[in-house]
Design a protein around this nucleic acid. Sequence first.
DNA 1: TAATGGATATTCAAATATGAATAACTTTAA
DNA 2: TTAAAGTTATTCATATTTGAATATCCATTA
Lengths: 293, 293
Amino acid sequence: MNNFNWQWWQYFLAIADQGSLSKAASILGVSQPTLSRQLLAMENQLSQTLFDRSTQGLELTTFGQGLLEECRLMQESALRLQRLADGQSQILSGRIRLSANEMIALYYLPNILPDFQDRYPQLKVEIEVNNKASNLDKRDADVAIRMFKPVQLDLIVKHLFDLPLNFYASQDYIEKHGCPQNSNEFLQHRLLGYDRDTQFEEGARRLGWNLKNESFMFRCDFMPLHLELAKQGGGIVGTHKSLCDRYGLVPIDVGIEIPPLPVFLVCHRDVQHNKRIRVMMDFLIERLEGALD
Amino acid sequence: MNNFNWQWWQYFLAIADQGSLSKAASILGVSQPTLSRQLLAMENQLSQTLFDRSTQGLELTTFGQGLLEECRLMQESALRLQRLADGQSQILSGRIRLSANEMIALYYLPNILPDFQDRYPQLKVEIEVNNKASNLDKRDADVAIRMFKPVQLDLIVKHLFDLPLNFYASQDYIEKHGCPQNSNEFLQHRLLGYDRDTQFEEGARRLGWNLKNESFMFRCDFMPLHLELAKQGGGIVGTHKSLCDRYGLVPIDVGIEIPPLPVFLVCHRDVQHNKRIRVMMDFLIERLEGALD
DNA sequence: TAATGGATATTCAAATATGAATAACTTTAA
DNA sequence: TTAAAGTTATTCATATTTGAATATCCATTA
């Protein structure tokens, strides 16, 4: 009776999402001809066409569209099952994926991760460096370091500490352009700002400032570049207090207090008891704060 | 990343439900060794045991139990997908499953089904004869004839007609035992009643009677037997008015009016536009009432 | 116009998964 | 105690599925 292979729905969804047999096949870990034939078999059994083919790829028919939504629900179950299963794993080998933004990845993790690998040599560590919050539901990452508190209910969140922030410039810069003495002077200086990232804008608005991204002379969302620029005397950067010494930067005090940046450690509730994930989180709890020397 | 085959969950659920590789394999349409190996591969990938084996079969480990519930949700999606897909089918060949109780199956369907098969020779008709309501969610049947109005929201229900009921006995019986003239006399007679089926009991209670199953002299849930017994002069039967002529039964009027039995035609909302199902329902709407000659 | 790149479908040798048969075991029934 | 009937695991020849290579098509670009 129930002769429909669930794997077919998995195939169907991958093809629909990718819009191409080749891409879907590569993600699914099968070859394009295999996927082509499986899809044909599926359509054959349904006596219905799921996708319109072209040399540009595949597009859902209206029939196929009618199945997509429920298929996504099925995928959610599948993902949840995988999390539930993996969540029980007490194996200390395999891979663990950590998500962090560029600043954490570049300035804090290198100090401590070698120790982790010494302690757990069987564990392969994969770091996803990304300003976007990666999807813990889909296990794009196992553990994430976030600078904001996630609201999603099925996530386990631990507040680690707060990163003090301030404005800094190099000694060179100050000698050349002088040190601003108040906020009006400050705004006339070469401020290193953001491009599409609105986090800073929003922070400023909460402090009652009208500081648009457009007001900055130099704009870039890749924060490490701000630091390097500031180091070369390129301008004033708002960044972590713990980094100024390393970069030979001096604080600029114009009576503006930047609220410190909270740091959270996050994992999915379903996998919180996974041993690999547990040891990674414990390690980060133990060592990350100390990495801010 | 997402290297888990959805088919494995299908296997997992079937094994959990059947409690045996052999049974599950037969249902899934694979061989027992195949299923045994697939399960092993699955457990291997999870590095966890899903079932404890014995020569009696397989039993879920606590780990496996933790996955069962979500797996059932996944199955619901799979079943819904299949209904949605099948629901669009405009093919007039294949099988169609009809669910009916014993009375309908035995006394009304034989009159009309041959015409259906003449009209749609490509369609194989399967009849599930069952007093229980078969599961339209799981497609145990495509179309069901029910004597009660289903409450489930995702079912399409059409009220066909009402079957008049009355009490009957054979001429022989009446000559031998006399015809009861009032309800007190009536209750002293040989009434043919039910065993575990409480539908009649409940109907009687709604009419203000205290008529327990235990009060009957002869008890059986298989209604056609009641009719045959009554025909042989075995007692008084409460049954369809339309059957009394065929069986040479005469009505017994003791001032008790049995409310007529409503007849509903039911299919799942998801498959209501399926052509096979459509023609079967149209046929039954057209012909079933006439079968009550 | 011709070349390129990206797409699906087909071919065919090779790897893989399958199932009949069987082994090994346990419970139940005789 | 033995036989029967049920279970899962293993073996091995077979059948199926797979993927590299290829054909073919179409849009884009030089």
